[in-house]
Design a protein around this nucleic acid. Sequence first.
DNA 1: TTGAAAGCGCTAACAT
DNA 2: ATGTTAGCGCTTTCAA
Lengths: 334, 334
Amino acid sequence: MTISDVARAAGVSVATVSKVVNNRYGVSPATAERVLGVVAELGYESSLVARSLRQRSTNVVGVLVAGFEPYSTELLKGISSAVEGTGYELLAYSGGSDGGSMVGWERRSLSRLAGTLIDAAIVVTPTLVLTEAQGIPVVAIDPHTGPEGTPTVDSDNTSGAREAVEHLIGLGHRRIAHLGGRTDLESARLRELGYRQALAAAGIEVDPGWVRVGGYWPETADAPARELLDPPSGERPTAVFAANDQSAIHVLEVAAEKGLRVPEDLSVVGFDDIPESASCTPPLTTVAQPLHRMGAEALRMVLDLLQGTPREQHLRLPTSLVVRSSTGPAPSPR
Amino acid sequence: MTISDVARAAGVSVATVSKVVNNRYGVSPATAERVLGVVAELGYESSLVARSLRQRSTNVVGVLVAGFEPYSTELLKGISSAVEGTGYELLAYSGGSDGGSMVGWERRSLSRLAGTLIDAAIVVTPTLVLTEAQGIPVVAIDPHTGPEGTPTVDSDNTSGAREAVEHLIGLGHRRIAHLGGRTDLESARLRELGYRQALAAAGIEVDPGWVRVGGYWPETADAPARELLDPPSGERPTAVFAANDQSAIHVLEVAAEKGLRVPEDLSVVGFDDIPESASCTPPLTTVAQPLHRMGAEALRMVLDLLQGTPREQHLRLPTSLVVRSSTGPAPSPR
DNA sequence: TTGAAAGCGCTAACAT
DNA sequence: ATGTTAGCGCTTTCAA
């Protein structure tokens, strides 16, 4: 079903059909009506691809993600509700989640879509600096680096992490481990920084063996979580601050498997406050990022950029501690 | 950054560049190496749009949704994990969520993307029968009609609803209202059917004023929810079975606003078991649909279709009741 | 081994 | 008011 089919059926040229469906001037009412009739009858709809190849703008904003997991989908919800009424449509593209060359997925996806399919892009957790080279406005959420280059939206990772660890210290914990995030993400670095700051402020020394790389994913967090809960030598920590909810939830699972009671034997704190953190067992104490709002603000920024009225370059939103049932008083020393 | 830029920089024709980047035969190692060097240097990546206009297949599966809300994003998570390792990429397109002509969004989106951008599509909650006319494999999740035409994935709405209402009856409730879903969706019809079946089996008559259309969305559920909880005449129900979690959660909010205690004064049951249903106050008793699995199965089906090895046409997955804190014994009659 | 040229579906400038 | 034509970036014959 192409424009030529319509043209043939209506007995006019493709140019005329194009004019009719795009409401251009220079077509007689009679012809327009006839063409519209054929369009309706055949159920013709112009191909986004062909149209965008030819035209400058598509009215589509791209959301580039590495995969659809709880973090990116929460952002997507915020972006989606913010796009309502703006006249733009959303296209979420998951490139590079697939095996092979995950590195640089954001640049690849951007190159493949920019300039043609999408007018602007929101990139979720890019791991490298996005050059503006693609020629379209780009906003990064939770970027690799601190503010530089592309406009960004993130939350106050350091202070959020500090608050989480202060909460544990306030409960009497002294042996607090950290299951870190992805080393290639600024957020992970900042959360570890907050962890260290809180411990330093309380005069607690950090045991080097209690800081592990968890990689933000359940799979990558598995081995380090087991090492933390089953230390080959030395004492087990009484609390774990995980760099995100997905790995915190995995810690919960490993703990259950090992017969550790949470929070009696072990307290666990996460980061992000994805919906799943409220429904795991026990419900997770975590540092909430305003994910919906971050998504909505990113969309607003990217549309501002598109309309040439950029406001701020970098937006940092506050976090808040949500205390649920995975944290409790430190067990008394044996 | 187009293929011509690369060709010019490498001093070859665009055809040669195309051959090199697509690993076609008939290009000398020396030339190939030089071109690859330029490609790497310039960071060239072929445009998905131009490429898909010319080629038959794109290795991209489209997921067509009306918007990114908890239901569709849960499916997306399941689809996304299932796509891993298949060599396909995912493109989630939200058309028609925007004001105007929401009706027929799925056919519009399908026409715009099929045949060019995507090789196959999963359509979430289509409201009309999808004709196969677009020429690509399509699987519908939670479709408008029962099994017919396109392959579908859904869950056992009727028995799930029955179970929910039986749970309420078992708690002593007799005055049970139903906040229905979207009248244009088969799932809503089946859930109401289950509601009526359970009441009929218990010999309880349905008060016509206690069955309202809620439309699945918080906004559309607002007015009917208020009417249910504040009946202009007659008695207030002691329990509400809402057709999905989003409207059930809204009932919780309206109840809180009116000073009704849940579950002491009012029991509420939802449907879907989206993550949010565990984190609302109080946590919601609901009928769980296996959303991740439904998404994963839909992807499997659509890939089977693509490879010409279709297995089943219609897959119906079982639901299960998740009892949380929003349901309790019926209040004793005044 | 390489390049010229056609064409995918569409829009826009131009000609009739 | 309508049609002809060129061209968006790319792949694919086909000819050199």
